[in-house]
Amino acid sequence: MWSRTLRTIALGVPLDLDAAIDAPVPEVCATMEERFKNYDMDRVTHVVIQSVHQSTDSDFPVHRLPIRLGLSRPFWHFLGKMVAKAVYDDETELRELNFVAIGRREFVAFTTSMWRAAEEPEARTEAQNEGDKAETMPQATELPPLNVIEVNFKKPQPGQPIELAWTPARGLFTAKIRQWNERRAAENDELHKCMAKAAE
């Protein structure tokens, strides 16, 4: 049933991600191997979710080219809300960063509020206002070490909550996220230089 509601797309509102899929987030639970039971989730900076391959375009920031992605981005956003609900008990915890296609699958990277607080001063202020997560937010301007987990959805079972399993991400995903972050940092530096020059 949940697979049908995921396809209930409201066309014409590609930038309104919460309205694009009008289905409520279903019941979902997260599992992990016993050896990861004491994993420090408060230090996770990024989450990678495996999705069905829907586009031939890859390796570009999803927040910059929403039109080219068609209906993929609302679907990713909904998957992110499901994972955030299961792992963090907070549907708003994850935010899309980018994706890469490998074979017939897409691996979509999301940032956590901990990473955004370190990367964006305004995000740090917002998170601290929430209270609960403020203690785990880095106070310095330096970015924390990358700590990425990888999420896979299990096959849905009739009448049962959707299950997903997470594990520390493979090195290739951490390396790709590092590459994206370095590229974005370089672009931001160039933008700041241009703005400073224009203000002279």
Rank of each mutant, 00 (worst) to 15 (best):
P121T: 07
R124K: 15
G103C: 08
N129T: 08
T141R: 07
D132L: 09
Q128M: 10
P138W: 02
F110T: 09
A109N: 03
A140F: 05
D89A: 12
A127R: 10
L94F: 01
V108C: 13
E93N: 09
D132Y: 04
R95W: 09
V100L: 05
R95C: 07
M137A: 04
E126A: 15
A117N: 08
S113C: 09
E130D: 15
P138A: 08
N98G: 03
F99I: 00
G103R: 13
V108G: 05
M137I: 14
A101P: 00
D89W: 14
A127S: 12
A127V: 13
E96N: 11
L97N: 11
V108W: 07
E96M: 15
A117T: 06
F99R: 09
V108Y: 09
K133N: 02
K133H: 02
Q128K: 08
V100Y: 04
K133C: 01
V87D: 06
K133S: 05
N98A: 09
P138R: 10
A127G: 03
N98I: 01
R95Q: 14
R95E: 12
W115Q: 01
A140H: 08
K133D: 05
K133P: 00
T111R: 05
T111D: 07
E119P: 00
I102S: 10
N129S: 10
D89Y: 10
E126P: 00
M137K: 02
R105S: 13
A117H: 03
R116E: 13
E142R: 14
F99A: 02
M114V: 14
T92P: 00
F99V: 01
A134T: 06
A123F: 05
Q139H: 11
S113N: 06
T112Y: 09
Y88A: 04
K133L: 12
E142F: 11
V100R: 15
L94P: 03
A109Y: 06
P121V: 09
A101M: 14
E91H: 04
A140R: 07
F110V: 07
A118N: 06
P121E: 13
Q139L: 15
E96D: 11
D89P: 00
A117G: 15
T112M: 12
D132N: 06
E120H: 02
M137W: 01
E142D: 15
D132W: 10
E106K: 07
Q139S: 14
T111W: 02
A118F: 09
V87L: 12
A127N: 06
L97A: 11
T111Y: 06
A118S: 13
E93H: 15
R124V: 00
P121I: 08
F107Y: 15
T111L: 00
G103I: 04
R104G: 08
P138Y: 01
E93G: 03
Q128L: 02
E122V: 02
V108T: 12
E96G: 14
A101R: 15
A101E: 11
E96R: 09
P138I: 03
M114G: 02
A117V: 02
A140K: 04
A109F: 05
R105F: 12
E135F: 09
F110S: 09
F107I: 13
R104F: 07
A101Q: 14
R104L: 10
R105Y: 10
T111G: 03
N129I: 11
F110L: 13
W115R: 02
M137D: 01
M114I: 11
A134Q: 07
